[in-house]
Nucleic acid binder design. Structure first.
Length: 104
DNA sequence: AGCCTGACAGATA
DNA sequence: GTATCTGCCAGGC
């Protein structure tokens, strides 16, 4: 079980993702500098309700909630999809990383 | 220790 | 394009 501090790091990173953009689990892990994609997944599974969880997707662009609420929200934010079905986000265009030079 | 599981990722076939 | 496998990190049994 990750420390509370780790949980906070992950959640704060997710909170910074602007509408219309997304981050992969691995991206979040890289940003917080510890753990891995699966740890981020753990955090989201247990504390995701408090943050814009739908902006965290798999590296291949598939949202966790396939064809469900995530896709609906992402579409309404203008996130580009590779296919009309909304199966996969266009990561090339929608991928985002926090501005390291301007933390907080 | 050994094996299994998971909101994952990358490589390979 | 899909399907599998292996690696990854942390935890549960």
């Amino acid at each position: 079980m990750p420390s509370e501090e780790y949980v906070e790091l992950v959640l704060s990173a997710v909170e910074r993702i602007p509408p219309g953009k997304v981050m992969a689990y691995g991206d979040v892990a890289e940003y917080v500098g510890q753990g891995g994609p699966r740890q981020v997944g753990w955090v989201m599974a247990h504390h995701g309700g408090a943050v814009p969880w739908w902006r965290v997707v798999r590296a291949d662009g598939r949202p966790h909630d396939k064809a469900g609420e995530a896709v609906r929200r992402l579409r309404s934010e203008g996130v580009p999809f590779r296919d009309p079905d909304g199966e996969r986000v266009d990561m090339r265009a929608a991928r985002w990383m926090p501005d390291l030079s301007r933390p907080r």
